[in-house]
Simulated scan of single mutants.
Amino acid sequence: MKKLKIGIVGGSGYTAGELLRLLIHHPNTEIDFVFSTTNAGKPLHVAHADLMGESEVLFTDTVNPDVDVLFLCLGHGRSRAFLEANEFSEATKVIDLGNDFRLLVDKEFQGRDFVYGLPELNKEAIVKAKNIANPGCFATAIQHALLPLANASKINDAVHVNATTGSTGAGVSLSATTHFSWRDNNFSSYKVFSHQHLGEINQSAKQLQNNHDQPIFFIPNRGNFSRGIYATVYTKFEGTVEQAVKLYQDFYNDATFIVISETPIALKQVVNTNKCILHVDVKDGMILVTSVIDNLVKGASGQAIHNMNLMFGLEEKTGLNLKSSAF
């Protein structure tokens, strides 16, 4: 197979850095351009130190409109403006890692129809898609905890979510809450009950459970670690723990990157991988689902490459055979 020509826009950020780390060693891709107006003409390692010696590609402030795949790694709300200002071939497939096209009301833009890119939910549509709206990181972890319940029409009471993300979830730009002196030995909540990922979470739940109208109370937290999301999700459940586990095992039976653990799980099991590991328990009429992912891989760049593999008929794990480090 001829290698896919890849263009990356917003090349200086964390998600772009993860895309490059993975795509440089992907057997079916070659990097055509990495767009960054602030670093044009400089080697990739000026922004991504881990790429020193890995690639001779330089940042550029021009684009090739005929690339096979365009990854947009811009800040939320900026992908539309970039596509308005830059034309690409009809054959170019676009994968947006921002939030511009995730909701159904926003999925059509300039003749492009964006498919919500959660492979475990929309695999058949992704295979046929020309444009993908990559899910948010919190949304990915939380949806994997909820989708089997929605599929069985078992979200019939309020859902409570508590999830903590690492500092890379805030992006590469400095802010008051990303400085080491603030983040270290610290813990805080933000956007309580109002996080922007709630829209896509509710949308996916309703896709599987048409009558879904229960509130999802989501408390996002900032942790004092770099990578990963640890989410706990609980709601009322009628049934045994054995029935609950089987519900999840059956739903994710063919899911390449989902693992159902029989024992309690920890964040290090998924960091630097494209896996989502789930643990399911039932106590006192409540189901508790713990979900862990790497926010930059399964929650962003790895999932984007998974979508690309599906769109071009490649084996799903191509370029994503990654292992975590336990210590």
Rank of each mutant, 00 (worst) to 15 (best):
M1N: 07
I8A: 04
T15M: 05
A16E: 00
E18F: 08
E18V: 15
L22N: 04
L23F: 05
I31D: 02
D32T: 04
V34S: 02
A40K: 10
G41H: 04
P43F: 00
P43W: 01
L51G: 08
M52F: 08
E56C: 00
F59L: 13
D61V: 14
T62H: 11
P65K: 04
V67P: 06
D68I: 13
V69C: 06
L70G: 04
F71S: 05
L72D: 04
L74S: 08
S79L: 07
F101Q: 05
D106P: 01
Q110D: 07
G111C: 06
G111E: 03
F114G: 13
Y116N: 11
E120I: 15
E120S: 11
V127F: 03
A129K: 06
A129L: 09
A129T: 07
K130N: 15
G136N: 01
H144V: 09
L149S: 08
A152G: 01
S153F: 00
I155E: 10
A158G: 06
H160P: 01
T168V: 04
S173A: 08
A176V: 13
T178C: 03
W182Y: 14
F193Y: 15
F193H: 14
S194H: 12
S194N: 13
S194I: 02
Q196L: 00
I201E: 03
Q203H: 05
Q207I: 09
Q207T: 14
N210W: 00
N221Y: 05
F225H: 11
R227L: 15
G228T: 11
Q243N: 12
Y248D: 08
Q249V: 12
D250H: 05
Y252H: 06
I260N: 03
T263H: 11
N274M: 10
L278M: 08
D284F: 13
I287R: 03
V289N: 02
S291T: 13
I293C: 06
N295I: 11
N295V: 08
G299W: 07
G299L: 07
L314V: 08
S324K: 03
A326E: 13
A326C: 03
